[in-house]
């Protein structure tokens, strides 16, 4: 078995008296698409924040490509090769679509520009490259955020609700893009409420409830898991 891209061991995060993430362990292998689901408030976004260093974990370990990354600053973790999008869109509104992509790059500007234009073409926003990101539609901003992540060529991509608010045509493109990333050998972990998306895209699904991992497995198996059904629909 290959070294896991990401290995989380006993990760916990509390906010006051609430255990947002409670002793979660999971492991991601390279070149696969993983789903992270659970009811609202089950700790999915907090888990993302702990992986990317935005929240400081209280206990546990996060290993990325065999290297410990918990305790590093968010920008250091991003530079190691973890990219993420946010549940609430976080493009840079007064930077143009093109600038949104360029700003996260280092090294040669000409290469960066070529890559940025290629990515904008890919999400059909090439014509809007000089528009302020804040003036784009919700779905378009979502795409800008998505391709901005790719500018840094990350090996692990965390997507927080990529399908929410994106129309059907765009969504299919987006899902194809995620599959293509997987085919290039990258690993994707996505939080998603749209079960069709999760079931159609993910190869392994983790289920969180009240900060704890209650199930893990193939989508088909998860769907019939007693504890998962209970978490979503109650007893």
């Amino acid at each position: 078995m290959a070294t896991p891209v990401l290995e989380i061991d006993g990760l916990s995060k509390r906010f006051g008296g609430v255990a947002a993430v409670d002793g979660v362990s999971l492991s991601l292998e390279p070149g696969r698409i993983y789903g992270l689901i659970g009811p609202n408030g089950s700790g999915k976004t907090t888990l993302f924040n702990c992986i990317t260093g935005i929240e400081r974990r209280d206990a546990g370990r996060v290993m990325f490509n065999g290297e410990r990354i918990d305790g590093l600053k968010p920008y250091e973790i991003a530079r190691k090769g973890i990219g993420r999008t946010f549940q609430v869109i976080r493009v840079f509104p007064e930077l143009s679509a093109l600038e949104n992509l360029l700003v996260v790059t280092r090294g040669g500007l000409a290469d960066a520009e070529a890559r940025a234009l290629e990515l904008l073409r890919f999400v059909r926003l090439e014509g809007l490259r000089n528009e302020y990101a804040g003036n784009l539609s919700y779905g378009q901003q979502k795409l800008v955020e998505f391709v901005r992540v790719l500018m840094r060529d990350p090996s692990l991509i965390l997507l927080d609700e990529p399908a929410a608010g994106v129309n059907r045509t765009l969504l299919n493109d987006l899902l194809d893009a995620v599959r293509r990333l997987r085919d290039e050998g990258r690993t994707v972990l996505l939080v998603e409420h749209d079960m069709k998306v999760v079931m159609g895209l993910c190869e392994t699904v983790f289920v969180l409830d009240h900060g704890e991992k209650i199930a893990e497995g193939e989508p088909g198996v998860i769907q019939t898991d007693e504890r998962v059904i209970e978490a979503y629909f109650g007893r």
């Binding site: 990317t52 920008y75 991003a78 530079r79 976080r90 007064e94």
Partner: peptide
Amino acid sequence: REDELAAEAMGID
């Protein structure tokens, strides 16, 4: 100025 948290998450020191 635009979004410091997002800037950090995008690898900007």
